[in-house]
Amino acid sequence: MKEHTRISCEQLIENRDRIKSVFSWDGGLINLACAGIFTSKDMTVDEAVLEDCKDLLKQKVSVFSNFRSTARSPIAALLATSSNPKQILENGLLVYEMLKKDFWTSSYLPLAAMIIAQMSQPSQYEKIASRTRSIYDLMKKEHPFLTSSEDSAFCGLMALSHKDDDAMIEDAEQCYSNLKPNFFSSNAVQSLSHVLALCNGDLDTKCKKTMELFEKLKTAGHKYGTDYELPTLGVLAMSGGDLDEIVQEIAEIDTWLSQQKGFGFFSSITRKQRLMYAGIIAQKDFLNKDTMQTAAVNSTISLIIAQQAAMCAAIAASSAAAASSSSSN
């Protein structure tokens, strides 16, 4: 394994452990998603700063708000990695109020608000919030029963794009049609198609590269997850790196992680979830290469997409676990 890759792996684990000391009641996947936010920016968690951001949420947001539900910890992590947490939270809450005019509240809507607040200027918030709903309506028209609250996060990302709305949705729909026969989960394929629609390039080529990477990983004995992990595969396929090199690096990272505490056979993190984080770390390496200057999608946006996909996966898994626990009582 490359030295800088090993450092990223060690930093992910250190960040996870530091986050656990602040959010001790959160599940392993939520803590890992938060750790990924810091690691993607080459930052080590400062527990005091993270604790301050946790308190800031308590001060500024009602206990009944979705900002303090399942998304609380990832939002605190996003704030802690910013230069001005208080201002970013104020901006995020402003965008959230705009989005609430057009969306039912959910654990995913605060994520969309925070991403929009961080990636755009206040003068653009109203327009982007409105566009987020327009894109959601176009999605809903194509898949009325499939499109749900979790898609609002990806709609927010798509609303930041310079691409035409209709063109993006048409691209996403074609990618969905091409890829769906290969996977069982319609929701996961829809999210993957949203990722690919954000990327430039011929849609057949994008789908082909994604499937080629999936098959190469499978052949190497590292079958990628086909549920909430799937969107991050699209980012990897579009990173501009050589697919064989990507597979080799993911395999090395996954093997190393499997030997670490909290990632082994008896941990709460599944093998496919671990592989997703191996992919996210590998993606970070390939996005830092010079090839990304001419790759299909901007490196900053790519990291945000992967970060958001990981947060959505953590929230979905936590929500499912809570529902299962509730039904068994």
Rank of each mutant, 00 (worst) to 15 (best):
S267C: 07
I115D: 00
I305W: 10
S258I: 05
K140W: 04
D171K: 10
Q259C: 11
R133C: 07
C155A: 08
L230Q: 12
N66W: 10
C312M: 14
A167Y: 05
A295M: 00
G262L: 10
L32T: 11
S191P: 01
T70Y: 13
K58E: 13
C34T: 03
T226E: 15
V61A: 03
I30N: 04
M311Q: 13
M276L: 11
Q11L: 09
T294W: 11
D202A: 03
G36P: 00
S177G: 04
A129S: 12
L287R: 09
S82T: 04
E173H: 14
S8T: 08
I304H: 02
F286V: 03
M168G: 02
L78Q: 10
K86D: 10
E170Q: 10
F183E: 05
P231W: 06
T39L: 01
Y228F: 14
T70K: 14
L109A: 10
D52N: 10
H222M: 10
A159C: 04
T300S: 02
F184W: 12
K209E: 14
V189K: 06
Q308G: 03
T70W: 04
A153C: 04
C312F: 06
S267N: 08
K54N: 13
I135K: 00
A321H: 05
S161G: 00
E170M: 01
I19P: 02
M158Y: 02
A76W: 04
F214V: 05
G221H: 05
S161F: 01
Q283L: 15
A296H: 08
I30F: 03
S239Y: 07
M211G: 09
L50Q: 05
L29A: 02
L78E: 12
D254T: 05
I30W: 01
P181N: 10
S149N: 13
P144E: 15
F67A: 01
I13G: 00
E245R: 12
L89Y: 01
M238P: 00
L257H: 05
Q190T: 02
A323K: 15
S186F: 11
Y228L: 12
S319E: 14
K141I: 13
E170G: 01
K101N: 06
D52Y: 09
L198I: 05
A237P: 11
Q307K: 12
S152L: 11
L160P: 00
S82I: 01
E252S: 14
S299N: 02
M238A: 12
E150K: 15
S267P: 08
T232I: 14
V247D: 06
A71R: 11
M292V: 12
S107E: 15
A309K: 02
K86M: 07
S8P: 00
Q190M: 12
H194S: 08
Q293C: 09
L217T: 04
L257Q: 06
L203D: 03
K86E: 15
D42H: 14
A159M: 05
Q118G: 03
C207S: 15
Y228E: 15
